[in-house]
């Protein structure tokens, strides 16, 4: 008898759990997107939750591309309200959004992040030009004997590229291809150092991209996964290793790591904000306007993110390593948070 009632109650509980799940109103903001913006957005979300009566938004770190894909999947509370990105939305992603009914989107450019090449403080610091960086990491580089011919990367030591560089083997740890950091690194650092080389200068755009953004696969470049802490740990243990990651990790570990100069520029917050440092990128978040008013607090969250308390010269985002925009850009952002203007495809082209 007892067993029967136990089984029955378990079955009832199970069916209740199964039946009570149809898509329902949500009162927590759902945010997805870039792992680079994640450390900043989480701080904003937590402040927002503790200083207002709205529940704390939920954040998933899905990468920029994954976030935009989820974001553009449609209108309705099972889809996220906001997505973060460490690059701008592509026109193709904008089209995807449009075709799924996500028509009104507001874009916020929330400051910059730099990508650094760092090493342990005990290692020889690199002073590189972008061209040397490409020669060290490119899959196919101009032959040392004949500049117009591409050959599989022959360089084994930094000093093979230029006598001024340290006499150690080229070993660089960096993010995997799924990462927005890798996209930006390929685009800004490698392509930046490669497009003016005589061997590629005459190529058409696609061809150039495929040459310039291919990283060597012979073991000199080591993909380390999305865990930047792991790279930091490896660098400290091994003086001959160099690592590629976002500026905020450098700042967090500034007394143990040093950063290579690129084209003579030291990565500092000022240099990155002023676009002086060559490998700097902008960070974004996108708001789905159809959800404003449906999920409470979206507008207030955008206002919190763009407020002086967060992004001002003494804001709390600065203390976690965001390179904040200058004052007039911040005023524009606050206007945007107020009016939520629509993003048009022309802006993205």
């Amino acid at each position: 008898m007892k067993l029967k009632t136990a089984i029955a109650s378990v079955a009832v509980a199970g069916s209740i759990a199964a039946l009570s799940t149809p898509a329902m109103a949500r009162d927590t903001i759902s945010i997805v997107g870039s792992s680079t913006v994640y450390p900043f957005a989480t701080v904003v979300a937590e402040r927002f939750g503790s200083n207002t009566d709205f529940p704390t938004p939920k954040l998933e770190s899905t990468g920029s591309g994954g976030g935009l894909k989820l974001f553009c999947q449609g209108i309705g509370t099972q889809h996220p309200d906001i997505t973060n990105a460490s690059r701008r939305m592509k026109p193709s992603e904008f089209d995807l959004c449009q075709s799924n009914g996500v028509e009104d989107i507001t874009e916020f450019r929330i400051g910059s992040d730099g990508i650094v090449i760092a090493s342990s403080r005990d290692a020889d610091n690199l002073e590189l030009t972008l061209e040397q960086l490409f020669l060290a990491l490119g899959k196919e580089v101009p032959s040392p004997d004949d500049e117009s011919k591409l050959v599989p990367n022959p360089y084994e030591k930094w000093s093979d590229i230029d006598a001024s560089l340290p006499n150690v083997a080229i070993r660089v740890m960096g993010p995997p291809p799924t990462s927005g950091t890798r996209d930006s690194f390929n685009e800004l650092a490698l392509q930046g150092g490669c497009e003016d080389l005589p061997a590629v200068a005459d190529m058409d755009e696609d061809q150039m991209e495929s040459v310039c953004q291919s990283i060597r696969e012979d073991g000199a470049f080591i993909e380390a996964g999305e865990n930047d802490n792991l790279i930091v740990q490896k660098l400290i243990d091994d003086d001959s290793m160099y690592g590629v990651f976002g500026y905020s990790f450098l700042e967090e570990n500034s007394d143990r790591l040093q950063a290579a100069t690129l084209n003579g520029k030291v990565p500092t917050a000022e240099a990155i904000a002023a676009d002086d440092y060559p490998v700097a990128r902008s960070l974004f978040f996108y708001v789905k306007k159809a959800h404003v008013g449906v999920v409470p607090g979206i507008k207030e969250y955008a206002a919190e993110f763009t407020g002086v308390g967060a992004m001002g010269p003494n804001g709390y985002l600065k203390t976690v390593g965001l390179i904040v925009p200058p004052r007039d850009a911040l005023m524009d952002l606050q206007d945007k948070a107020e009016n939520l203007p629509n993003l048009s495809k022309d802006e993205l082209m």
């Binding site: 939920k58 954040l59 998933e60």
Partner: peptide, 16 residues
């Protein structure tokens, strides 16, 4: 989506 930054302690089966 359960790998997410969630501050509030969930109160039920349908909370994040």
């Amino acid at each position: 989506g359960m790998v997410a930054f969630i501050v509030d302690v969930p109160g039920g089966f349908l909370d994040s």
